[in-house]
Structures are given as structure tokens and as C-alpha cells.
Design a protein around this nucleic acid. Structure first.
Lengths: 334, 334
DNA sequence: TTGTAGGCGTTATCAG
DNA sequence: CTGATAACGCCTACAA
């Protein structure tokens, strides 16, 4: 933990100027003798270049930041896990921000991008306000947003397609003969909550099913909230299927259905969303709409690398295809 | 995304020197008039301090790095989730390294600490080699290791107590009348694998149970490996309980037991280790030895903060208490 | 090929 | 209280 040597230290030891040291270290044309002297000195001293000083010159930090609501949420974990290798291979470190879905926190992260501690920011806001859009426009470094932003927003954008996703799920339930398909959603003022509410309504319409408000219940995106919401829903009506806005909600629904003595999937089929690691572990295993968390993370990282390579390209929008993963909670036992 | 203003820009605009600007920005005693002029100018220009330049001067980055084998592993996720708020409250950002348990990768991270991109490193190596110990000794910044290191190693250390943990589990199984307690472990050359093997053997001795090699099987730390190992074990003997070295292995064991038509816990009780998010979701819900992943993460972050505040203090060792969380896989249905 | 010197944006130490 | 000015460690013209 002693103080590290600098190019000056090496220069003295090798009996050359700091310019020569820098040249050797950067593989610029230099005489054999100098190269050897510098290499030896650097080796002996255990020299490690100071990336901060280098960043000050180059205005590059080789770090990319990712801001998410909660590092404990499996969806974000899947994203991080997918970004990591992409960024690493390109020589970037990943910095994490957990914002607890606090809007001021998120805006703060965007503002601090100006501090230049990172070359770019990938952000997945759970709510999207006017202030977010302003902050995107004023950001001092490239921003990639995971979650739909309005067209024309000057950022690269990776989108999930909940519309198609929910359609896949409802088609599946319909094909199984289910007609009273309930929906346990998260808050409507969130990006996913709003998107999924629209998607559910559209799917009902397309299937020619009636819109029954009694079949819709809203809670937060966690297991306990999902359980409470399901309880409220069951208290007033009897669905033969439950679509849930994420897997945690679905787990809560499974808890309540089991407690009520209802069989899954015989009495009530259940579908989750996000296809997290929890889905194949649950009992019964959980059918879930995979919105491609991992792929969204990967694509976001790729967009960021492209943007860092060419800052002036047109903003791009990438949409990731959803997929329905059928398991025991809708079909037989597993 | 335009070029940002610097203190020089502000100084010109406010008609003062850069020194005065710096003083105002750092709240050092300054005259009212100067303060106002600088504040106004900074505001108008949308000034944001450059943290890289500040770091160069102060040799502080306000970043702490965490190196783990796999960001997808729930144990590490729990650690990250617990470190995050501690570090954040102290004004530090968290940087992530996923090393895929590659030793060269880990050593590289340690070496690159010399680049000073982070003020300190928290690392949780899955294997611990001689080279690791050397690298710890030579590290250019504080290192906190999660996982036992030999006494005398010059780093702060957070340990789990697998010995007590396995003892709790085996006591529980013994109390339930189980006498043929199998053990599905991970590789013996890993830190947790070795510790848990010793702990299992010790617990058997203390309970006065015979050591039957047929009851021990080794695979890797993932679900499929746990399943395969369990299959091998069942092919040669019939345990009435299975202790598993982590929750993923335990899930694999549950898969196999179910496939073989064995009832859990009636025929075979199952205990996992780490008490991850997966344990309460599994079916039956999984009894698991909580080795305090979250608390280990939290304590590691705290040790790091202490160390950064006082670099010369004696290296500290913190041991986190294990806890047995009893669920359906050992006791009734749940 | 090599060395000198200036600058990246801040902080901090001096005189004034 | 304020303004020059010298670092921090590195890169890079420009000169020699």
C-alpha cells in the first residue's frame, strides 16, 4: 500500500526524460536502448499507470454507469449480468447506481454525468417525468434509456414490447379455454405499469373479450403487494386465469390462491411477466412472459459502445422481442 | 452534450480569479460579493465540477470496487444490495467486476487497483491461492476480503461461520430423527467447498454419527451439477436427509428427489446453504443455513469505510453469525 | 530519436 | 479577502 511510482520516477531511474518514458509506455517509435531501459525500470518499480491522470488528459474514463431502481430486482440483475461482458470486452468498467426509484436521485445521477466520472450512462427509470426528458436533452455524456421514451428524445432507446408479450400470454390462456382473465398490475404511473395496462386492454379487445373492471387490481411490484391485490380481486370476483405484471406479483398470487384452496392451473391459471430466475423455481413452476431483460441489457451496452465510438449518429431505437415461456402454472403440473 | 464550463470560464464571467471560484465552490471564507458573483456565474453556465481533475489533485476517486465471481449469483447480489446503501451514504460509488472465478482476472483487478480508479477493493475470491495472498500484500489501495484468509494477511476480513452453520443444520436434522445425513458439496479446492467439507465432518463427529464416504458427493455449485451429484449419491445409497452446500445445489437435489418419487421431507429432508431469495420460493420451501450474505456485504463496506478513514489501523476480522431458517423441506409442508 | 514545456481542471500555498 | 502560481500524473506538440 506504499505510494506508487510515476513516470517521473521511472525517468530518473532509467536516466531518460518523462517524454521518452511516455513514448515507450505508449509504444511510440523509440530506440531499442531507451525501450529496454524504461521497461526494466518500470518493471523493477512495479509501475502502474494512473488512470485518473490519463483520464484528465484524454477526457475518457473507460467507465460506463448503469442506474436502476433496485439492484435486488432480478430483472435488473439480469440486465447487469448481460451488460457486464459486453462492456468488459470493450475495456470498460461498470459502475452501479441504485436509485430506489427516487426521481431526484435519478436526475441527480444524470446531472452528475457532467462530473465526467463515467463516459456514458445507461438508465432504466421506473417512472418517466418531464424533468427526465429535459435532463436527457441536457446530459453532458451519452445516455441510453431502457424503457420506452417518446419519439424524438435525443437518446438511444431499448424497448420491451409488452403489447406483444401480453398478447402472447392472453392468446395462450384463451387457447386453454380461459375467458375470465384477471390482471394484477403495478402502479399506473410507472413506465411498465402503464404499458402493461394498455397492452392488457388491447389484448382483450383483440380477443373479443369483455372489459370487466372487476377483473383488474393494482398493487405495487412486490410479492406482498401482489398477494394483497390478488386477495382484493378474489374477494369480489372469480377469474379462471390471472395475468400478473411481474413475477414477484405472480408469486404473491400463487401464495393467495394456495391459501384459498384454489388449484393452479386447474381452477386458476397464472402467468407472470419478466421470466426471472424465480419462475422456474416456483411451485407450480410459473409460466411467464419473457420481455428479454438480459437481451435488453446487452443491447443497451452495445448501443452505448456504438455511441461512444460515434457520438453524432442518429439516436437509435431497439425493440426486443418478447417470448412466452410456458410452465406448470398454466399447463398441467411440472 | 456540449463542452462544459470550467472554473476558468466562471472566473472570467464573474470577473474574479480561479482561486476565488474554487474557494466559493468549496465554501471557504469569502466576501459576500464574490460569493454572489461566482454563484450567479456558475448557475448561468450550468457548471458541474470535474471529478477527474479533483481526483487527480486529491488522489481520491470516491469509488469503491467490488469483485465477485458472478453478478448473477444470488449470494453476491445480496452482498451488493447490502453494500450499496452503506457506500452511497458515505458518498462513494460502487464499481462492479465480474471475474467468472478466473484467478488471473482477479489478480488483474488487484494489480489495476494501482491505476487508482477506485479508493479501495472489496473482493470475494472463490479460490484463494498463494498468488492472491501476495497480491493482497502488494495492493496499492485498501482491500477487504469476504471469505476467510489466513491469520496475518494484511487485509480486513469478513468471514462466514460455516462450521456453526452446518452444525445448526445437522442438529436440526438429528433432532428430527435423521441419522443418514448425506452431503452434496461443491469443489473442495474452493474456499466455501473446503470450509463446508470440514464443517460437515466436524458436525458428524460431534453428533456421534459415523463417517460414511458413500454419503458424500461433490459437484459444482449450480443446479444442474447439484442434480447430477444427487443422482450419483442416490444410485449407491439411501440417505434420510441431504445437506447441500448452497441453495442452487439444493434445488437440483429437490428436482431429482421428486423425479425419483421420493417425498420431501418425509423420505428425505433437504437443507440448503446461503438462504437466497430462491429458498422461500422453492417447493417445498427450502430450509436453508443463512450465512448472512447481506450482512457480510454490509460489514465489508463498513470495514472499507473505516479503513479509508484510518489507513493505519490494525487489520480487522469480522465473523458473521449463521442462522438456520427452517422451512418445508425439513419440517411438514409449507 | 530525444528532451523541454505547456496544458488537462482542481486544489492549495503563498504573497499582496 | 484575493490573486498569482505551483502542483497532481500524464500526453504531445515543438525544438533540438
Amino acid at each position: 500500500m506504499r505510494q506508487g511510482p510515476t513516470i517521473t520516477t521511472i525517468a530518473e531511474r532509467a536516466g531518460v526524460s518523462i517524454a521518452s518514458v511516455s513514448r515507450v509506455l505508449n509504444r511510440l517509435p523509440t530506440s531499442e536502448a531507451t525501450v529496454r531501459a524504461v521497461r526494466v525500470a518500470a518493471e523493477e518499480l512495479g509501475y502502474v499507470p494512473n488512470s485518473v491522470a490519463r483520464s484528465l488528459k484524454s477526457s475518457r474514463t473507460n467507465q460506463v454507469a448503469f442506474a436502476m431502481a433496485d439492484i435486488g430486482n432480478p430483472t435488473y440483475v439480469a440486465m447487469v449480468r448481460a451488460m457486464q461482458p459486453v462492456l468488459k470486452d470493450a475495456g470498460f468498467r461498470l459502475i452501479l447506481h441504485s436509485t430506489d426509484a427516487d426521481i431526484d436521485d435519478e436526475l441527480d445521477v444524470l446531472r452528475r454525468l457532467g462530473e465526467r466520472y463515467a463516459d456514458g450512462l445507461i438508465i432504466s427509470p421506473i417512472r418517466l417525468t418531464e424533468r427526465h426528458l429535459e435532463a436527457f436533452a441536457e446530459a453532458r455524456a451519452p445516455v441510453v434509456v431502457i424503457g420506452s421514451v417518446p419519439d424524438g428524445t435525443p437518446v438511444d432507446n431499448v424497448r420491451a414490447d409488452s403489447r406483444t408479450g401480453l398478447r402472447l400470454a392472453l392468446d395462450h390462456l384463451y387457447a386453454l379455454g380461459r375467458r375470465r382473465i384477471g390482471f394484477v398490475n403495478g402502479p399506473l404511473d410507472t413506465v411498465p405499469g402503464a404499458a402493461r395496462a394498455r397492452a392488457y386492454a388491447d389484448a382483450l379487445t383483440e380477443l373479443g373479450l369483455p372489459h370487466d373492471p372487476a377483473l383488474i387490481e393494482i398493487g405495487d411490484f412486490y410479492r406482498a403487494d401482489g398477494a394483497a391485490a390478488t386477495r382484493r380481486l378474489l374477494a369480489r370476483t372469480r377469474p379462471d386465469a390471472l395475468m400478473c405484471a411481474n413475477d414477484l406479483i405472480a408469486l404473491g398470487a400463487l401464495d393467495v390462491l394456495r391459501a384459498e384452496g384454489l388449484r393452479v392451473p386447474e381452477d386458476v391459471a397464472v402467468v407472470g411477466t419478466d421470466d426471472t430466475d424465480l419462475a422456474p423455481v416456483a411451485w407450480p413452476t410459473l409460466t411467464s412472459v419473457a420481455l428479454g431483460s438480459a437481451e435488453r441489457g446487452r443491447r443497451a451496452a452495445e448501443l452505448m459502445l456504438d455511441r461512444l465510438a460515434d457520438g453524432d449518429a442518429e439516436p437509435r431505437v431497439v425493440t426486443v422481442e418478447p417470448r412466452l415461456v410456458v410452465r406448470g402454472s398454466t399447463k398441467g403440473t411440472s
